[in-house]
């Protein structure tokens, strides 16, 4: 098991190195930082001085190592557009994205899993069939379209919910949360649903498919043949086994929720990292872009590791590793 973990950890490090290399190439070769800092008509001497100060006269691999070292300390330089340290900018924006993503993921799981179970247990019937059709719609509807549609109906036409920003927030140390105010929750509803719907539909269909699969297995039939109550058969035996692959997908989806929050944040002007990134692309604000790239990669890699650990927690067969897969003899 330790070997397994070590291998996963090693993979994670490799992925991070590759991404940081891409970020570095972007950082170093897209645009010309010296020109951006000094303007077009600086003298050659000035340019050389600034280039040396930035370490641009060193060989590329030295520069990459320095980039790595600084990145490891959270130092991605200053935003070209805003002139403030990138790390500071991102730290300000992280809470908004995390809270939106958590809300969306929670919604997708808390609604998607029970509905998936329901449609697996009661396969016929109007409710199950409509849910399945709706879930198809949820999967195929583009996020920005859904966002605009919701704004049109609930903000513009009905005027029930705000469509812009986070609303009132409360500071908990450096973390500004919208979870503690009514206004914050009201602002969360529309972007939260927009971000959640695709994931919800995915979770529903996945849970349903896995449940149907597991309910055909011998151990579920045996559980029935022992006269266990339906709740025990469905949840203790079937759902638990069905959740194995679901946990993986949900975990990986959490990464994409955070990454794809970008679109939702843009539609709803939600002041998160995604919006910051979208704005920095427009200005070719390379340090911000590079930092965002590394951060998202870190999120994905971390989530992958957590999913692996969750597997170990759920499945006793993995916990023992290959050491005691079977005790031979009768």
């Amino acid at each position: 098991m330790l070997l397994y973990l070590a291998r996963r950890l090693f993979q994670a490090v490799v992925v991070m190195l590759v991404v940081s290399l891409i970020a570095f190439v972007l950082f170093r070769f897209v645009g010309d930082p010296v020109t951006q800092m000094l303007g077009q008509d600086a003298t050659a001497a000035d340019r050389a001085r600034v280039a040396a100060a930035l370490g641009l006269d060193q060989p590329a691999y030295i520069q990459y190592l320095r980039f790595l070292e600084q990145a490891a300390h959270g130092d991605f330089g200053r935003s070209l557009k805003l002139g403030r340290p990138v790390a500071e900018l991102l730290a300000e924006r992280v809470p908004a994205t995390i809270e939106l993503s958590l809300f969306a993921a929670g919604l997708a799981i808390l609604v998607g899993v029970p509905l998936g179970v329901r449609t697996a247990i009661v396969r016929r019937g109007l409710v199950s069939r409509s849910l399945l059709t709706l879930s198809l719609v949820g999967i195929s509807l583009p996020t920005f379209f859904l966002g605009v549609l919701l704004i049109l109906v609930f903000s513009v036409t009905l005027g029930w919910l705000p469509s812009y920003g986070r609303g009132d927030t409360v500071a908990l140390g450096w973390w500004r949360t919208g979870f503690l105010t009514v206004d914050g929750w009201r602002h969360l509803v529309l972007p939260g649903i927009t971000l959640a719907l695709f994931q919800l539909a995915l979770v529903l269909r996945l849970v349903r498919a896995e449940m149907l699969e597991v309910m055909r297995t011998d151990f579920v039939k045996f559980a029935r043949a022992r006269g266990l109550k339906p709740a025990a058969v469905y949840f203790r035996h079937a759902l638990r086994n069905a959740l194995m692959p679901v946990v993986t997908i949900i975990g990986l989806q959490l990464g994409s929720i955070i990454a794809f929050a970008l679109i939702t944040e843009t539609v709803f002007q939600w002041p998160g990292m995604g919006l910051l990134f979208a704005q920095s692309v427009a200005f070719a604000d390379v340090p911000v872009m590079a930092a965002y790239l590394c951060l998202i990669a870190l999120v994905f890699v971390t989530i992958n590791l957590v999913v692996d650990l969750a597997y170990l927690a759920i499945d006793p067969r993995l916990r023992d590793g290959r050491l005691t897969t079977s005790v031979k003899g009768t």
């Binding site: 151990f219 045996f222 559980a223 035996h237 638990r240 086994n241 499945d315 006793p316 067969r317």
Partner: peptide, 8 residues
């Protein structure tokens, strides 16, 4: 296959 692999 008759026993649930996730429960003792």
């Amino acid at each position: 296959t008759a026993l649930n692999p996730l429960l003792t």
